[in-house]
Simulated assay, not measured.
Amino acid sequence: MEESTSMESFLIELVDTLEAILSAMTDHEKPVSYWKNITEQLDTLGWDKSAHLSEDLSRVQIELYDASKRKHDLTVSFPPGYPAVPLIVEPLEVPECDAGQRSLSQQVAAEALLLKNNPRLEAVIQQAEKQLEFFNEFWDVMQDIGENTWVIDPENPTRADRMRRCALGNHCSIQITIDPLSPRSIPDMRLFGPIASIEPMRTKLHQNAGRWDESKLPRKNLEVLLELPDGFPSPVSVTKDEMNIECGICYSFRFEGQIPDQLCSHSKCQQPFHRVCLYEVAK
Rank of each mutant, 00 (worst) to 15 (best):
K116Y: 13
E90F: 12
Q126M: 09
D144W: 12
P95C: 04
Q107W: 14
R120K: 07
P80M: 05
V151H: 03
T75N: 06
W150H: 03
S173M: 03
K116F: 14
Q106D: 15
N136V: 12
V141R: 10
A84M: 11
P79C: 01
D153Q: 06
Q131H: 10
V76N: 00
A167N: 08
P83R: 03
E93H: 10
C166A: 08
E122R: 12
A99G: 06
K130H: 09
I145M: 09
Q127D: 08
T158A: 04
R165S: 04
G81N: 01
A123T: 07
M163R: 12
P79L: 00
A128Y: 02
I176W: 02
A167K: 03
P86G: 02
L113S: 11
N156T: 07
W150A: 01
V85I: 14
E90H: 14
C97Y: 14
N170R: 14
P119R: 00
K130S: 12
D153L: 09
I145Y: 04
E93D: 13
L115M: 14
I145F: 13
E96P: 09
Q131W: 04
N118K: 02
Q143M: 11
Y82N: 00
F138T: 03
Q107T: 13
M163S: 11
N117L: 08
Q127G: 02
L132Q: 04
Q175Y: 05
N136K: 06
H171M: 14
V124D: 04
R164T: 04
T75R: 05
N136R: 11
D73F: 10
T75C: 07
T158L: 07
M142I: 09
W139F: 06
H171Y: 12
S103E: 15
L132D: 00
G100M: 09
L92K: 05
R159D: 15
S173F: 00
L121R: 00
I174W: 04
M142R: 10
A123C: 02
C172M: 13
